[in-house]
């Protein structure tokens, strides 16, 4: 699902680009900062992304996948408690 090399598709490549939004830059920087603290490396980031359900993976934007991965890896490591982030944003 994530391993796209040669995946059969004739879909055209959408070449429109966007400047990274502040939350996307922040997501990127959070991962870097976690890496700097030895709490998450790029292989773990990928493992988290690759464990997304196929449908969610296909639909998520790039940094939405990072968010998904960081939430699950940090929960796994006990850095974030279950539901802690939801509670913070008031869901």
């Amino acid at each position: 699902m994530h391993d796209r090399g040669g995946w059969p598709t004739e879909a055209r490549i959408d070449r429109s680009e966007h400047e990274l939004a502040d939350w996307e830059l922040m997501m990127d920087a959070i991962v870097g900062a976690l890496g700097g603290r030895g709490l998450m490396n790029v292989d773990e980031l990928r493992r988290g992304i690759e464990s997304m359900p196929a449908n969610a993976y296909e639909q998520a934007s790039y940094y939405e996948r990072w968010l998904y991965s960081v939430e699950s890896i940090l929960a796994e490591k006990g850095v974030l408690a279950a539901g802690e982030l939801d509670k913070r944003i008031g869901r």
Binding site: A21, M26, L67, L85, I89
Partner: peptide
């Protein structure tokens, strides 16, 4: 995801 990242 945007407010969620800020909260994170």
């Amino acid at each position: 995801a945007a407010p969620r990242v800020r909260a994170l």
